[in-house]
Amino acid sequence: MDNLKTKHFTFQLKDLEISVELIEELARIDDSMPEYSRFLKEEIDSTLSLSQIEGGYTILPAQLDQNTIHIGDHCFNVGKSIANKFTNSTHIAIFTCTTGPLISDRLKELNSQGLILEAYLIDLLGSVMVEKAMDKLQAIIEAECTSKGVNITNRYSPGYMNWDVKEQKDLFAFLPENFCGIKLNESCLMTPVKSVSGFIGIGEKVRFIKHACQSCNSTNCLYRNSKNHC
């Protein structure tokens, strides 16, 4: 679908405002642990500063029913819980975002050196990077919508709640091939690994509902596992 109107953005790691303290908190590194803040700062300021962080989206008309979202010829079975959150959406922003391949390369390097704890922290940093970049992209989408007098919902991804991750294939059908350098394998795993995709609902009467851990069934989410999760 190369004729689709997509918008594409790049982000700098320094602009994502990721603090070392946040990574340490998510990793549950307390004061008794060895000093890793210097390592993380060096990685953020130098080693990973050239990460090719990019994201983009396309906005398309959509119809909703109880459990599904219809876009063009495709029917996304997102489940009742997510469909409810898109109530009153007339359009959907189909988005994707990635940290680029540098994180994966660095992970391989650290693991091969036996630096397992450092590799774990970089993996976590990658997860935070893609979420922070996604916050920026969501803000861009929101600004575009606000300027047109419409509102947005929160963002939701295949794999979340009852939305089958397999539908990621249909989602990527709405984006140009190799968009943002992201590829899907047969298992719907995105590469670069630290990538996300999903939907944001758009409409005059949509509501933005904050994420709440108690309404989510994910057991391996980095935010749920952090000390101060919601």
Binding site: I29, M33, G114, I116
Partner: peptide, 14 residues
């Protein structure tokens, strides 16, 4: 304990 502490134990084990 959490993953970092387990990894420190693994380092000691190594």
């Amino acid at each position: 304990v959490f993953v970092p502490q387990v990894l420190m134990s693994a380092k000691a084990m190594d």
